[in-house]
């Protein structure tokens, strides 16, 4: 968590390049067949439960088992590695990049994630707050709930197995909640953003500044 926020620098960075670049890697070894071309516009998942898959990006075939990989965000296809089309690739080989246009809210969140301690999902699972934290949030709101290292803050539910998730960061209040309790969260996605109490004014300043300066 940093005190030194250079607002002008950060804001001009987002003004000159208001995009997020999402790299897509081969999920496992296999033969690749691209289903998009560079410059194509793609959409991410939609539907009430995000159950309607995004645009198909590529197929990967391993031992006659073909999987279609779809886009998890909207944007434009960049840096597609056409030379790999029809070829066998190793797991984690970079295949393409999606340039995702950021909305104002996403820009605020991106900046905040640089200054908050962000706690990420350890596994793809459903998460909900630990009962004690949930009741404190209901009584006073998340931004009044202080968490300390070692606190049981969340419960991860995967295949009907509940696992307490213990907070391992700086002491602070729950400033941002990035998931809806009981909703499926991908591994590595942010769950909560924690802010040390004395840094709250700084956070508020960031939000106000971005809101004011970003049309």
């Amino acid at each position: 968590m940093s005190d030194n926020i250079h607002f002008d620098e950060i804001i001009s960075r987002y003004r000159s390049d208001p995009y997020d670049y999402v790299d897509m890697y081969a999920m496992h070894t296999g033969k690749i067949r691209f289903l998009v071309e560079e410059g194509d516009e793609v959409e991410g998942p939609s539907g009430e439960w995000k159950h309607i898959a995004g645009n198909k990006l590529y197929e990967i075939t391993r031992e006659r088992n073909t999987k279609e990989i779809t886009s998890l965000t909207n944007g434009t296809i960049l840096s597609l590695r056409k030379e790999l089309d029809g070829k066998f690739v190793e797991a984690d080989e970079k295949l393409l990049t999606i340039r995702h246009p950021l909305k104002k809210k996403e820009i605020i969140e991106s900046i905040l994630q640089e200054v908050l301690f962000v706690f990420h999902a350890p596994e793809r699972a459903r998460y909900y707050f630990a009962m004690d934290i949930q009741s404190r949030i209901e009584q006073k709101g998340a931004r009044s709930v202080m968490v300390h290292p070692g606190d049981e803050v969340l419960t991860m539910s995967l295949m009907k197995r509940d696992t307490p998730v213990f907070y391992e960061g700086e002491e602070g209040i729950i400033h941002s909640v990035y998931f809806k309790p009981g909703e499926s969260v991908d591994q590595g996605a942010p769950l909560i953003g924690i802010c040390a109490k004395d840094k709250l004014p700084l956070i508020q300043k960031i939000i106000t500044r971005v809101k004011a300066e970003w049309e």
Partner: peptide
């Protein structure tokens, strides 16, 4: 992976790894 793949009424599929 043990995920439950379900066909929704609108013809789309959804896979769940938690819940009941």
């Amino acid at each position: 992976e043990g995920g439950l793949v379900m066909l929704l009424e609108d013809g789309t599929c959804i896979t769940e790894y938690a819940g009941e």
